[in-house]
Structure formats: C-alpha cells, structure tokens
Design a protein around this nucleic acid. Structure first.
Length: 431
RNA sequence: GGCGCCGUGGCCGAGAGGUUAGGCAGAGGCCUGCAAAGCCUCGUACACCAGUUCGAAUCUGGUCGGCGCCUCCA
C-alpha cells in the first residue's frame, strides 16, 4: 500500500506485512461538542485501521484528546477541568454514533504530564530548549530542519510562532521559538509542577509525548487535518526529532470540510455538530458522504450532497431487501487495487456499485462492513400490525379490490413503511 | 504578500497523453391492477489562453477563480 506523504510530497510505500503499522492521529481540543469536520480525521483513521487490519497488518492507533488549552480556560473560567472532562465524554459519545469502533489508545494531555515534563527536560539538557520567565521555549535555531514539513524552510517570517501576549514574546530568543511549558497565569484553574515552576504544557509538546508513550520513538503514520501542518505538526516534529526520536515516517493530512465555501471551524462559528448531522441524516449517510471524497481533498457540505449520499444508502439498502445469497469469498483484490493506491475511497464506492449491479453480494457485504456500512444489509422487520395490514392488502388484491388495496397501502405509508409487491408476496421496507 | 492544494458533464466525483469510471438528479421504455424496487436506453465533460506532441482533459508556461496555512483550529 502507498500513501501520499506531506513531508516528501509524494507517494510512499508502507512497510511489508505484517508491519507493525503504528499510527498517531491528532484528535480534537475538547471544550464543546465536535462538529462534522472534526469527524473527518477520526473516520479516516478508523477506516485505515480497519483496512490495514483486514490486510493482515498488526496495527496500533493512538488518537489524542487535547484537554489542556486556552480555549478551555476561556470557555469555562474556574471550571475548565470539569468542562474538559465532560467534552471528552461528548467526543467519545458522538464519534461512537458512527459505529466504527475506537482507536487502541485515546490519551489525554492531563494524563501525560510526567512524560511531557520528561521530554521537555531532555530538550533543555540537549540545548534545544531554554527556560525563560517560568516558560520553556524550543530553540528553533538549533534545529536546522525546521520548516521542512510545511514547505517554508528558511522563511523566518512564515515560521514565526507568536506568543499569546506581547510581553511573553520578549522572553524568546527568536520569534520562531515556541512554548513547551507555559508558566501559570492568573485565571487558569489547572496547574502542574515542573522543574521550571508551576504551569502547564504547550499544545504541541503533548502530542510528541503521547505519540512516543504509546507508539515509541518511531512510527509509520501521523495524521490530522491539513490545517495542522503548521505550526502544530512542524513543532511536534522539531521536538521529537530534537529529542533524538525518528518520529513519524508518513504524514497524512486530510482536506478540510467546508460549509458555504469556508472551512468549518469552531472559531468561525459555522459549525454543524456531528451529533446533529447523524441524527438528521443517519450514520450511513454521513459515512457515505465521507466516502465520496478522497481524503486529501476538501469536501463541501450541503443538503444537496447529503441527499445524494442518502440516495446511495437507499440504493444499497434496496439491493439487500429480501435477498438471499450463498456464502462465497469476497473479491478482496479488487478492493485492494483501489484502497492500496492512496486509499481511494471514491473508487472503492464505484466498485461497490459495480458489485451491486453484478450481484456480488458477498463482496459487497464485506466491503460495506469494512467501512461501517454493514447495517445497510440489515432488513428492518415491520411491526406485526403493519404485517397484518399488508396481508389484508394482499387478500384485497387477490380479489381484485384495488380501491381497498390502495387504501391499505396508504395506511401503511402513514406509519412510515412502504409495501412492495414482489414475486412471492410483499416486502415491507421503512420509508 | 509568502507557502501549498485544487478547478471534470445539471449535481457529487475517480481517472489520466490515444480505449464507457461510478453515483445522484432528469428523459424514454420494460415490468406492475396502479405503484415501489429493479432492469434497459439516453449525456461525448474535463476553467481560460498559448505551447510541446501524430494526438492533451491528462505534460509545460501564463491568466482567471476557489480553498487551506502563515493567529487557536481536524
């Protein structure tokens, strides 16, 4: 399998079976319910995990939850820990709605403080970081590779990491330097001890620490939204390599989900909560919506596009209505051909339709289930009173009383079900 | 302004130097008591302008347009 890697800007081959494939994906900062755009890397990572495992790889996926952040302090003054804990639960709840399973590890920053402090200490000892005014900063000048990942190597202006406050900026030796540890400030209601004084970790260092803690000093894939390339991932890479770890070998950055021509983001306020979208459209529609676009491209959210995804869900669902099939081997190679080529899910979807029209039930069932869409094959059973109505309608039809038959069909439809006449009787399907 | 991604038929969206992608919507037909579902048929698209080539939507240059990052952000 090969994947497009941001660092080398080309396709990179995965190691041979059985791996291991160790993956780290950046999860959300938790201070409110996640939106559907936040779900994209989650969905991508779980699909990748499922496909790689299906392919025979030994996979380990870690996906962090950032529960220390300015946004959290600001959103819940005096109760940031409570908000972060609640929002972490919401995140798990909401992503569980997708039915894709969980990553192997979902570490939180607050549970990784000793490792973070240790990593910062290592960087300070190695001359790659320096304490200043209770903060600790990464010394970018000591890491020549800085800017390589984001393609802005040498451009000092583009590599500037501004401090939150002007007076903090003066503590830095170089505008590019960024905080690894931030001294405790008035109004922040969580604080941890460190050799440099009380405070809390910077954003980037937590990922470096968590990745190493759960995956080791080198791992195969690092993923996240492409809005994280700079500064977040650039800084992670600098910290971890600066501390002597090889770190990630392939960088997978997914495209943004856009609403009305703009990236959906919590700070812009143009958000559709994942939970609401799943409730309104159903989980299969949301998954199919993600499946229609290649992971690297931007994807536009609109009712029209969701309606198309829902129509596809119906098409698959209809295929399975009343279907019996012989167990047979899925045509794995056909799916591998498209997924092993940069995980081309739109091509996979085309293949599923091909399998559908050619009646390859076993393959279709297997392929859909891989992406969490196996439920499309599950027939809902109608309540007994509706079955009785449908039977009554069959009798009416048999005696050619079509007015009565149509009346009964209307009654069934009023209850949200549709009756279809088939060769040996009828089928009841939800509308 | 700098760095990067992208512009495909009504809509979504792969692909890729010469051969039907696929889906959704739409039209006609078959089937049906009528429907639904299903099946068959129908679209000759690749932003624009130059260039390379026997041949480009696919390569090169430019133009226009969209998006992301450069501030927290999946």
């Amino acid at each position: 399998m090969r994947l497009f890697d941001t660092y080398s800007r080309g396709l990179v081959e995965l190691p041979p079976l059985p791996g291991p494939i160790r993956m780290y994906f950046c999860g959300p900062t938790v201070y409110q319910r996640i939106h559907i755009g936040n779900a994209r890397p989650f969905v991508l990572s779980m699909w990748m995990k499922r496909w790689l495992e299906q392919s025979g790889y030994d996979v380990r996926l870690a996906e962090n939850i950032t529960d220390i952040n300015d946004k959290i302090y600001r959103a819940a003054p005096g109760a940031s820990a409570e908000l972060a804990a609640a929002a972490s639960r919401w995140y798990v709840e909401d992503t569980d709605l997708l039915g894709l399973g969980r990553p192997d590890h979902e570490p939180k920053a607050t549970e990784t403080i000793p490792e973070i402090v240790e990593l910062i200490g290592k960087l300070v000892d190695g001359g790659l970081a320096y304490p200043a005014g209770g903060d600790v900063y990464f010394r970018v000048a000591a890491f020549p590779e800085y800017g390589r990942l984001s393609g802005r190597e040498g451009d000092h202006k583009a590599l500037h990491n501004p401090s939150e406050e002007a007076e903090r900026e003066e503590l830095k030796q170089d505008p590019r330097d960024f905080a690894l540890w931030k001294a405790h400030k008035e109004g922040e209601d969580t604080v941890w001890e460190s050799p440099w004084g009380p405070g809390r970790p910077g954003w980037h260092i937590e990922c470096s620490a968590m990745a190493e803690k759960f995956l080791g000093p080198v791992f195969e894939i690092h993923g996240g939204g492409n809005d994280l390339v700079f500064p977040h991932h650039e800084n992670e890479l600098a910290q971890s390599r600066g501390a002597g770890s090889e770190f990630a070998r392939i960088w997978m950055h997914n495209g943004m989900l856009e609403l009305t021509g703009e990236k959906m983001s919590k700070s812009l306020g143009n958000i559709v909560p994942l939970r609401d979208a799943v409730e309104e459209w159903g989980r299969e529609t949301i998954l199919l919506f993600f499946l229609t676009a290649h992971w690297r491209k931007p994807i536009h959210l609109s009712d029209a596009v969701l309606a198309q995804a829902r129509a596809q869900a119906e098409t698959f669902r209809n295929y399975f209505v009343g279907l019996e099939h012989e167990p047979e081997e899925p045509e794995r190679d056909e799916l591998a051909r498209v997924l092993d080529d940069d995980f081309n899910t739109p091509d996979a979807l085309a293949l599923f339709h091909d399998w559908r029209t050619r009646g390859r039930t076993a393959s279709l069932l297997w392929g859909l289930a891989l992406f969490g869409l196996g439920s499309l094959a599950e027939a809902a059973s109608a309540p007994a009173d509706l079955v009785a109505l449908a039977e009554k309608r069959s009798k009416a039809r048999a005696s050619r009383d079509f007015d009565e038959a149509d009346r009964l069909r209307g009654a069934i439809e009023e209850q949200g079900w549709e009756v279809r006449d088939v060769a040996d009787g009828f089928e009841l399907v939800p509308k």
